[in-house]
Amino acid sequence: MLETKLAEQDWMTEVRAMVGREYGRVYAWDEVNAPMIRQWCEIMGVENPLYTDAAFAATTEYGAIVAPPAMLQAWCLEGLHPNNYPPGSTTENPYEVLRLMEGQGYQSVVAVNSDLTFERYVKVGEKLYYTTRLDAVGEQKTTALGTGYFVTLIMSFFSEKPGGNEKVGELLFRVFKFRPANAQPGADAPKTEAAPAAPKIKRPKPGVSDDTRFFWEGAAAGKLLIQRCKCCGTLRHPPGPVCTKCHSFEWDTVESAGKGSIYSFVVMHYPEVPPFDYPNPVGLIELDEGVRLIAGLVGVKRNEIAIGQRVQVEFQSFDDGELTLPLFRPVAP
C-alpha cells in the first residue's frame, strides 16, 4: 500500500512539473473557407447571412464573409486520422499530460468547460494555428463519475500574417481525467439497435412504511390525509406510531381541507439535480388544521414567495402515475 502511494506521488511530481509548459503551433489543414462555413451553418441551423451571403457580408464592417465565432476550434482539428497535423505543426503532444494519467489508470475523460473568447472574427482566406499551454492540474477529486484530476489547457488561436501574426481568440478547455467509479466493460454494453435513446431520470420515491403508507395512498387518491390519535384526537405529522401527547398507539386519519399558509421556505438553486426544475421552491406549510408539512411550491416566482402567503394543495402525478405528490399553490388570502 505504502509503495503504491509513493509511486503515485512520483508520477504526480512529474505531472506538476509540466504545469505552465507551452506547446508549439498546430496548424489548420485548410484556410478559413466558405464551403466549410456554409456546411457548419447548415447543420447548426445558424441563419445569419454574415456567414453565407457575400452580398450581405459586403455591407458589414468586415466587407466579406467571416466564419461563425463558435467554429474557431474546428479549423485546427486534425480530422479523420488522430494526431495527423499539417506540415509545420509541432511534433510535441500538447495532451501528453493526459497520456501520462492514462498510464496511471485514469483512462476516462470527460470535458467540463469550454470557454471561448474572441479578439475578432476571422475572414475567408485566413490561415490559423494555435499554441497550447498546460494551465493547471487540480488536486485529486472524487465526483459521481469517479476519482481523478481536473486538467486545464489554454489554446491561443492566431492568424498567420506577413506583417506579424495576430491573435484572434482563445479557448480554455478543462477536462476531468478519471478512474471510473463503476467501470463498465464494453462487452456488457447493450447491443440492441433499438436501445432506448436516453435513460429517463425519475423522481426519487419516498420510503414507505406501515406508519406512512396511508399518506402516500391518500395522495394517489387525491386526498391529503393527516394522522389523528384515536384516544385524544391530536393530529400529528410527519406520521409516527405513537401519539406524542397521550402516548397511545391507536390512530386513524382525517382528510385535510388542504388550505394553509407558508410557515417557512427554501429555494434550491444548486446543485441542479435532474429531473427537478430550478430554481426549486420548497415550503414548510402550516395547514389550517394545525400541523405542518414540507411540500413543493408551484405557481410561484422565487422573488414573490412570502411567509404567511396563503396556499392550497393540489396533486401532481409524475413518471406515468408512479408517484403522486401534494404540492401547494398560492391563493388569494
Partner: peptide, 27 residues
C-alpha cells in the same frame, strides 16, 4: 456542436449584427 447550437440560440435572439465576445459553456 453544442457551442454551435449555443451560438444559434443567442444569435437568433440578438440578430445578425451582434458580435460575440465570448462563449463559455459547462457540459
Amino acid at each position: 456542436t453544442t457551442s454551435g447550437l449555443v451560438q444559434r440560440f443567442v444569435e437568433g435572439w440578438a440578430g445578425p449584427g451582434a458580435r460575440f465576445g465570448s462563449l463559455k459553456i459547462k457540459l
